[in-house]
């Protein structure tokens, strides 16, 4: 996200926590876990939360197809209209919602996001799903779980558990949108 709250008195110290190959391995493992847990990924639909969740959902879908030859539909679900913090900032532009042609009724929906933090985004996504259809089950996959949950939500598939301080920021870069793969931990330090 692009909320650069850097004041002139602070300096950012950033450290890469995951590099390109680490991300690839994490996604590979998540794909295997999805296949294992859903017994072959029948009826699975991958829905990414824009922007980077969509890219991750697509990558996981490609892996599942490669490992067991099942085509898993992937799409995106925008949660902007369901956020609980809309009144805190000026109205934001909407992301894309693209649902697979068969819809989500009776399917196992795996929500995919880049970073799991407070859990509020996932709460909004669950509300959005409820207005679109009635999945058989909803699961959650995330590349990074950085803790600090504010709601009773947990991920089913986690790329990396990353202990963080509240003041730190986690940024995910993916080659499709950012030209490289990396997860970076940004520390704000007072000078």
């Amino acid at each position: 996200m692009s909320d650069a709250r850097t004041r002139p008195t602070t300096a950012n110290v950033s450290r890469a926590v995951l590099e390109g190959p680490d991300i690839q391995r994490a996604l590979t493992r998540i794909a295997h876990e999805i296949l294992e847990r859903t017994k072959g990924a029948q009826d699975v639909v991958l829905l990414g939360i824009p922007t980077r969740g969509v890219t991750l959902a697509r990558r996981i879908g490609e892996r599942v197809a490669r490992f067991e030859g099942v085509t898993v539909p992937s799409g995106s679900i925008d949660i902007t209209m369901y956020r609980d913090d809309l009144r805190l900032r000026p109205a934001r532009p909407l992301g894309r919602t693209e649902l697979p042609a068969d819809g989500i009724d009776g399917k196992i929906v795996v929500l995919v996001d880049d970073v799991l933090f407070s859990g509020r985004t996932v709460r909004a996504a669950l509300d959005a799903l409820g207005d679109i259809g009635r999945p058989r089950a909803v699961q959650l996959a995330t590349l990074v779980d950085r803790g600090h949950r504010e709601l009773p939500i947990r991920a089913d598939y986690v790329g990396k558990n990353l202990p963080t301080a509240m003041s730190e920021k986690v940024k995910v870069y993916l080659s499709e949108t950012d030209g490289r793969d990396a997860v970076v931990l940004i520390k704000e330090e007072d000078r």
Binding site: M81, Y82, G95, T97
Partner: peptide
């Protein structure tokens, strides 16, 4: 353009069975 792009996304809502957003 922001209004038109926003409308492009909201157009999907009119095709859903629940045509409502809590916003």
């Amino acid at each position: 353009l922001l209004i038109l792009d926003t409308a492009e996304e909201l157009a999907q809502v009119s095709q859903r069975s629940i045509k409502k957003l809590p916003t």
